[in-house]
């Protein structure tokens, strides 16, 4: 009997609180699978953000620290500098990482902090109920951009992987999506690669994961996957934006 698929050991045996079809659950699982693959649960400290994933500390079996909104990379810096041989990852949403925590994100990259950032980009604030995010697409309707996001009023969506790839201390930056099984497999490989970069002490690794928010987008889970494919990926192209182990970018 071969096990094709089972719950990874690093994932706690606790039901997720996420809405039906929300891809946070997939992303959590992929992080846990990477931790299992490298057998590093006992050496890993995870950082939960503020946002829908605030309860992430309940879902992993490694040590977990809950950070103030946007400050996860600073908290990670403190942990990593105190424990340079441990694995430290942050799990952050788009509001957390790309709005209130932009400075922490960029400067953890500039310092080349040897940490892994898992960045969930679903183009909306989920926990507070569907407000505009820094990554909300132009024209996208949210509760705080009820007439659709307009560049001249709310500005343009931020492309974080592209931004981070220009920073010297960033060792690895890849954007993946969870809209289908093939892309989920690709995301899994990317997350594992990010932890390997950290293991090899090469610098900061960031994996941006295009995710869904069926509840606040107002779509069914399946329609949400279509939105990722049809609307998000064209603005946020998938691919490796930086890989210092290969020297340079390798966009799809």
């Amino acid at each position: 009997m071969n096990i094709v698929f089972e719950k990874p050991k690093a994932l706690a045996d606790v039901p997720f609180h996420y809405c039906p079809g929300c891809t946070h659950g997939i992303a959590h699982r992929l992080v846990a699978e990477a931790i299992d693959a490298l057998d590093i649960e006992g050496q890993t400290i995870g950082i939960a953000p503020v946002g829908c994933a605030v309860f992430a500390y309940n879902y992993f079996n490694c040590d977990m620290v809950q950070a103030p909104h946007g400050r996860a990379p600073a908290v990670a810096t403190g942990i990593k500098r105190a424990n340079p041989d441990k694995f430290v990852f942050t799990y952050q949403g788009d509001g957390d990482l790309a709005a209130i925590g932009t400075a922490e994100t960029i400067h953890s990259g500039a310092r080349g902090e040897n940490i892994t950032i898992i960045f969930i980009n679903n183009a909306i604030y989920g926990m507070t109920g569907g407000q505009m995010a820094p990554t909300t697409l132009l024209g996208q309707v949210t509760t705080t951009s009820p007439y659709g996001r307009k560049a001249e009023i709310q500005g343009n969506p931020l492309r974080i992987c592209e931004l981070m790839s220009t920073i010297e201390g960033v060792a690895y930056a890849e954007r993946v999506a969870l809209d289908n099984v093939k892309n989920i497999r690709r995301a899994k490989a990317a997350i594992q690669k990010a932890f390997e970069i950290q293991r090899d002490k090469k610098g900061l690794s960031i994996i941006e994961i295009l995710s869904t928010c069926p509840t606040n987008w107002g779509f069914s889970p399946a329609q949400s996957m279509d939105f990722v494919r049809e609307k998000m990926i064209p603005y946020y192209p998938l691919g490796v934006y930086k890989d210092i182990t290969k020297g340079g970018a390798n966009n799809e």
Partner: peptide, 21 residues
């Protein structure tokens, strides 16, 4: 066919898939 695709896309780790050796 125990391909595991249902389990891979499931956000809630509902599914376990096994294959006969």
């Amino acid at each position: 066919i125990a391909c595991g695709m249902c389990a891979i896309i499931c956000p809630d780790v509902v599914i376990t898939v096994i294959k006969e050796d």
